[in-house]
Design a protein around this nucleic acid. Structure first.
Length: 116
RNA sequence: AGGGGUAGAGGAGAGAUCGCUUCCGCAUGAUGCGGAGGAGGAAAGUCCGAACUCCACAGGGCAGGGUGCCUCGUAACGCGGGGUUCCGGUAGUUCUUUCUACCGGAAAGGAAAGUGCCACAGAAAACAAACCGUCCCGCUCUUACUUCUUUGAAGUAAGGGUGGGAUAAGGGUGAAAAGGUGAGGUAAGAGCUCACCGCUCCGGUAGUAAUACCGGAGGCACGGUAAACCCCACCCGGAGCAAGGCUAAACAGGGAUGUUAAGGGUUGCCCGCCCGAUAUCCCGGGUAAGCCGCUUGAGGUUAUGGGUAACCAUAACCCGAGAUUAAUGAUCUCUCAAGACAGAAUUCGGCUUAUACUCUACCCCUUUGC
RNA sequence: GUGAGUGUAGCUCAAUGGCAGAGCAUCGGACUGUGGAUCCGAAUGUUGGGGGUUCAAGUCCCCUCACUCACC
């Protein structure tokens, strides 16, 4: 399995994001809002952290951790998706593993994961 | 030894695995492989100053904004260095005033160009006058005493009233009361006169200067506030890398002006200047994908020299991020003092603010010892 | 990137440089069998924070924090 996360694996234009926001399926809890839509092949990710988390170092860490989680666990997705994650709460003080389990719990709620 | 302040230096390290991104090389034809590099002292706030680019010129006046002890540094600054004066603290000195040293701070030009303001209290708040009071003189009333033979009159003293004059010493206030203290002087007083201090003016000396010191003269005039208006001196064209340029794609055009003067530009106004036909302006429509700008620069490090210093000069060596949904990360292990504030977006010079912990220098406080 | 504004009692807002107020809300009392309404009374402030100018600062000046808005 390829664990890399190259440019083609990321959602890279404003136009695409607006389209996704209009047409995608939404799942959310207190921390995240995930918008996803099925794709033919090659899952892609985009992360947006709200500015109410004032400190930019914290925003950067949250975004990087989420990208890392996606990179390592892409094969667990049921199908290929465009996946846009909006972070609503400051979760920068949590560890990688706490964020990971919270993220998977939400994805499972949206039935986007393979059956284990 | 502990605490505080100011200034400065640093601000976790090592290993393994999996990634991201820029450049170079090779393979190749869109990705692989290898190599090298990859956030800060504040990258922050956007409070100042510049570079750079465009607006076809930037020139004058008014308006507006900014700065304001002196001097040096700088590309420039509202920044920095050094000095002056004033203020605060500490220590010493002195009966006290004062003087000296060290540390810290200051938007520190002009109040004898003009205007405004100075609540409450107070007699009065800026023109020094009125009032109370003090003193002298006149008139008058009351009381007491004395003198004259009595009625009564005169005189003296004290007190009250009133008129004229002298005065600014005193008047409970206030942030501030018209030089201060002491002596003389006077009817009472007063820079009225004198001594010391302060102040103003003039001259000299030292210094580039701010200013300091010395000498002389003047009886003293000039309350505070310009971070109130204002005056004076100096500075400022406007916009900002979403500047601006190129390529590609897409769309729908319409209107106005028009040959020497309408119009337009010069982003507050006037003059002036400029543009003026495949032109200019206005309205409407379309696209927003890529490339350049984009990192070698008022650049760093070291040495030598100059300078009290900020800084400057010369030489050698070095190249140390360049993204665009936006790289510099994640996990695990080990070490210790257990890791703060915090993330580049055109680029520099400052200022300001945040900052666990460690260290250095100076100053202050507390305690203990010599 | 550029520019403008706001911050005062729990809330909404006032206040020429001169004793920080109003309305609503809160609390206590009266009225009522009880509650509401009404009447009487009371409490409430580091004027976002720090420093400066001034005799005196919410007001003037500087720095700073938070928030809001506008334009490209």
């Amino acid at each position: 399995m390829d664990y890399r996360l190259r440019k083609r694996d990321r959602i890279r234009s404003r136009k695409e994001i607006i389209l996704l926001l209009k047409s995608g399926k939404r799942i959310e809890n207190k921390e995240f809002k995930i918008i996803l839509r099925e794709r033919e092949e090659n899952s892609r990710i985009g992360v947006s952290v709200k500015k109410n988390i004032v400190n930019s170092v914290k925003r950067n860490r949250i975004r990087r951790v989420l990208k890392e989680i996606f990179r390592k666990n892409r094969e667990k997705l049921k199908k290929d998706y465009d996946l846009f994650i909006i972070v609503k709460k400051d979760i920068s003080s949590k560890t990688y593993h706490e964020i990971e389990s919270a993220f998977f719990a939400l994805l499972a709620k949206g039935k986007a994961l393979k059956e284990c």
